[in-house]
Each structure stands twice: as C-alpha cells, then as structure tokens.
Amino acid sequence: MNFEIYCDESGLEALSHKEAHLYTAIGGIWMPADYRDIFKEHINAIKVKHNVYGELKWNKVSPKFYALYKDIIDYFFQTEQVRFRTILIEADKVDNYVFNNKDIELGFYKFYYQLLHHWIFDFNNYNIFLDLKVNRDKTRLKALRNSLDNSNLTSGIKQVQGLPSDESLGIQLADILTGLTNAKFNKEITSTAKLGLIAHIENTYLGNTIAPTPKWEEKFNVFKINLQGGW
C-alpha cells in the first residue's frame, strides 16, 4: 500500500537554546496516498465554511478562529484514514557535543528518523514530506531517506522532500497537532482558545490528559523519547 507522511516541528529553537522551552516536538500525519484528494477536499470545505483561505497554523489559533480549528480537530479524530504521531524531546537532555559532533542539524534529523522509523511497516511504500528548511548540509533529506530505506528493507521509501507549508494541507495539520501537543507539555499557554482546543481533545476524544502513549496507539501517538539511556 502507498502512504504519504506530512511533517512539521514545534519549539525547534530549544534544540540550540535550551532555555527557550522544556520540549521540542516533531510530528507527522500519516494517510493512504489515495486518500490525499479527499483529505484536501474536506479541509478546504472547512476553511470555506469559516471564510478562511490562508495557511492553517497553531500560532494562528485565537478566539476569532476557535470554531475553525475545532472543526479541523474534529475532522481529524473522526477520520480513520488519517493518523498522527509526534516525538517529544526534552531540550536540556540533548547533548549534540557528545552524540552529534557538535552538529545540531544532524541531531535534529536523527530525531526525525526516530519519529518516522517506528511507524514504517513492511510491504508498504512511503512518500515523506517535511516542512521546507534551508539546511547547512544540503544532503540531509537524502541521508534521511537512505537511512530509513536501509533500515526498512521490506518497505520502500520513495522520497523525502521539503515542501513549503503554505502549499500542503497535510503539513498544516501536522503543525496544528504538533504545536498543540508541544504546548501542552511546555505549559506556557495563556490563550483561552488554545487551552480550549487542548481541553476539547482531552474531554471529547482521549478521555484523559494528553500524555505519552504506547507505541501501538494508532490515532494520536505521543512518543516521549528517553535520552538518559538505561534499562
């Protein structure tokens, strides 16, 4: 089966300035490739309903647009073809000097590998789209694709490509859910609209607070990586 994965990040600055946030998050939206057009049709219909035509982003959530983002979240949770996974990284435990030869960018893409690798399954093909970035090392995406391909020999990693987020509704949904989850763990939110969306997910769909989940949680998967080692 052919799948597409759309990815974005939240709190990325904490990987280089640890005082910025407690956590950095990287998240992805998984969907069957043949569902993409239906997904776009439904998301665009929600935007038209609310008379919104610009890019969807967690940072744009406000009381004025609360109903829009609530409808987007409801669509996600009520649509079995679309899944979400995020990796939470404790900023103060990241040691790029020891593990990444002082290369923060390399460390960042190693975390991307951890996000993706554990949800790539045998006998499927994957096209992976990341929010477009200017990397110091221009081979980062090629190296990520090769690493994923080499460690998943019975699946095909067809491409890992950067896309501008304003051109991809999948990346925009990843931005919303990744930003929301990271905001919950960073405990920095004062926005009533953002707090309302978090409460809506917890009360309506999870029945509990947003927290790390088992690997096998298929709909809303939160992986808090252990950077301390040990058993």
Rank of each mutant, 00 (worst) to 15 (best):
D71P: 09
I72F: 02
I73P: 04
D74V: 03
D74S: 12
Y75L: 02
Y75A: 02
F76T: 04
F77L: 05
F77E: 03
F77I: 00
Q78C: 12
T79L: 04
E80W: 01
Q81N: 15
Q81A: 15
V82Y: 02
V82E: 06
V82M: 06
F84Y: 14
R85W: 05
R85Y: 02
R85H: 10
T86V: 15
I87E: 07
I87D: 03
L88M: 14
I89M: 07
E90I: 07
E90K: 15
E90L: 12
A91V: 03
A91F: 00
A91Y: 01
D92R: 13
K93G: 04
V94A: 08
Y97E: 07
Y97D: 07
Y97L: 13
Y97S: 09
V98G: 02
V98P: 01
V98S: 12
F99Q: 08
F99C: 03
N101G: 01
K102Y: 11
K102N: 13
I104W: 03
I104Q: 07
E105G: 05
G107N: 10
G107Q: 01
F108T: 12
K110N: 12
F111G: 02
Y113N: 10
Y113C: 03
Q114C: 02
L116V: 06
L116Y: 04
H117Y: 13
H117S: 15
H117A: 13
H118S: 11
W119G: 05
W119A: 04
D122W: 08
F123H: 15
F123A: 11
N125G: 14
Y126E: 06
N127H: 13
N127M: 07
F129I: 07
L130I: 14
L130N: 05
K133H: 09
R136W: 01
D137Q: 04
T139E: 07
R140M: 14
L141Q: 11
A143T: 12
A143M: 12
R145V: 06
N146P: 03
N150A: 11
N150R: 08
N152V: 10
S155D: 06
Q159A: 14
V160I: 06
V160N: 02
V160S: 08
Q161M: 14
Q161F: 10
L163R: 14
L163N: 11
L163F: 13
P164A: 13
P164W: 08
S168M: 01
S168G: 06
I171C: 03
Q172A: 04
L173T: 08
A174R: 10
A174W: 10
D175T: 07
L177H: 06
L177M: 11
L180I: 11
L180K: 06
N182Y: 01
N186K: 00
K187P: 02
K187L: 03
T190F: 11
S191C: 08
S191D: 09
T192I: 14
A193G: 07
A193Q: 03
L195N: 13
L197K: 00
I198N: 00
I198W: 02
H200K: 07
H200L: 01
E202Y: 01
N203Q: 14
T204Q: 11
Y205D: 02
G207Q: 09
T209D: 12
T209Y: 10
I210Y: 00
